[in-house]
Design a protein around this nucleic acid. Structure first.
Lengths: 327, 327
DNA sequence: CTGAAAGCGCTTACAG
DNA sequence: CTGAAAGCGCTTACAG
């Protein structure tokens, strides 16, 4: 098994020192144009590329970012992953990816991130114990929570402003003079659900109105089944807020099945604005998360590399009106 | 900015040599139980973990696998990614992930894999030029194509047996005595579409029957729109094969919208068996790809690390009957 | 079972 | 602008 070619060999072929080969690959290094061209040409010919492992070792910058994601069959997070890999690449970072199962990420799940000396860990739709965050901080690995918040955690956080969003949705329903309002929730142990419920519910509380709640889990199946049961029991809401799009789509199908007219008899609003929301058969009105801005803000924090900040960045989204509301 | 603790420092704390610290972390190394415990305890106390970059450099084994994926809003491939990261972890590998845009992956898109010395590259739902494959082979990086095939490419390939599958679907429709058969295709430049069309079409050719074709692109929207146009033009097929589930779901919605009864007037079969296919509102009959087996086979090849094989592994799937067929 | 030492392939002061 | 040399943090023959 032949080994890959190294800078030593390129140096010999180009008749320069190994340091010069190294410099030729660094645009900021002072190398004469002629020498650089010679080196790069030969490197190209032999398909030489600097070994990132060696580089990472000596510079103590792995140029690696760990992304841990708890997949929940929610396409939203795959859009997140795609966006991150693309944008991070623009900054010279590569992505070490790990899939996690639990809402709270365990140390062993991200141990590899540690070993590979990642420059930051982005945790998407899950969180970690404050103990783990502390350990990581000691090891000089900043953690950024994406779309999860936790007051106790000493780390940076980027999410959309869930309370503002759900209040806006509540306000929309309120102005429509809807009386029977239903919230179909997401997982109870998530900050997103907590905030969306809080914003939505507190708005109506203020107006002295009660809302009804179905406890979902951010999946289509649960939302569909429980909403169907609810409707079959004779409950006819005027307006339904599904805690995420997948949930709202489950709601939508249940309402359709019962034969209620959407949006005339029931208005439905989701959250996320995943691609499916715009499918012709759904045309779901939803709250659009400003994904691109969120990703950009995350990368901004990461580029600063400031470990001791504890920022809580919340980004406002906006309505995306389609045909499950009448406006 | 404090640096991470190294084996040197652990050695000093444990009053052993640095080599002994290293050995303590290798279960196959001969270290007395007592020494190992002492070292590991101290390592644990100080959150020391061997630096994978340094290890990769000296062993010339990065324990990194590159996965390149062309996302196509097809949830199937996210299940693939999840499965791979989980199973590879069991073998001590970590995943460098990259998202690509084009059907044919460019060198610069996977240059990072090269630099990080990945032990293999898994390409999912896309392919590479034979030139690139050759270069990678020279650099000692095996490529495994997952769910794409290409006769010209000198690399290993793992996919489900698309021809067998589509022939089985054709046979199913044929035995039902369906006359007007429609195939809604995927992208024409993919091997999956080529094989699925070939298997399906050739079966009917043999029986001297013609099928009709709509040119889709593996997306819901296109399948929905074109099928709707087709139906509105007065075409009423007895049976439709959608080249993947997302396509079949688009077809399903179009057929529903026209008001045809499924499965009595029209039978529909998809391909993949994504989670959505089993959603209560769809209940799509489909051809189930044996995902787990496919992933296992891929990892098997990878563990062998045999660069010069050129295997074409095809795995047979099976029907998953739901309510878009009557049987 | 343990230690001293070489070396993986780079980057980067230092010197000229 | 260029080269010689040190060193990043490991693994692994080699010797004892």
């Amino acid at each position: 098994m032949r080994k890959k070619i190294s800078s030593d060999q390129i140096a010999e072929l180009a008749q320069v020192s190994q340091s010069t080969v190294s410099r030729a690959f660094d645009p900021d290094s002072n190398v004469s144009a002629k020498t650089r061209k010679k080196v790069l040409d030969i490197a190209n010919e032999f398909n030489y590329k600097p070994n990132a492992l060696a580089r990472g070792l000596i510079t103590n910058k792995s140029k690696l970012i760990g992304i841990a994601m708890k997949e929940k069959q929610n396409p939203f997070y795959y859009e997140v992953l795609s966006l991150f890999t693309q944008k991070l690449k623009d900054h010279g970072f590569s992505v070490l990816f790990v899939h996690t199962e639990n809402e709270e990420i365990q140390q062993e799940e991200i141990a590899k991130f540690w070993e590979y000396n990642v420059e930051a860990i982005i945790v998407t739709d899950a969180f970690l114990s404050s103990d783990l965050v502390k350990k990581l901080k000691n090891a000089n690995i900043p953690v950024i929570l994406f779309n999860r918040e936790n007051e106790d955690l000493q780390c940076n956080t980027v999410s959309s402003d869930n309370i503002y969003a759900s209040q806006s949705i509540a306000k929309y329903f309120y102005n429509k003079k809807h009386k029977k309002i239903l919230y179909v929730s997401g997982n109870h142990n998530t900050s997103t659900n907590r905030d969306r419920f809080y914003g939505f519910n507190s708005f109506f509380k203020q107006k002295n109105e009660e809302i009804e709640v179905i406890k979902g889990d951010y999946t289509f199946e649960t939302a569909y089944q429980l909403t169907l049961d609810y409707l079959k029991a004779g409950n006819i809401p005027d307006a339904i807020f599904g805690a995420n799009d997948i949930t709202a789509l489950g709601v939508l199908e249940a309402v359709k099945e019962i034969g209620l007219n959407i949006p005339d008899e029931v208005e439905i609003i989701g959250f996320d604005d995943i691609k499916m929301a715009s499918w012709p058969n759904y045309q779901l009105t939803t709250w659009s998360q400003p994904l691109e801005t969120m990703v950009n803000e995350t990368i901004k924090i990461l580029l600063k590399g400031d470990l001791n900040t504890n920022r809580r960045i919340k980004i406002k989204g906006n309505f995306k009106f389609r045909s499950t509301t009448s406006n």
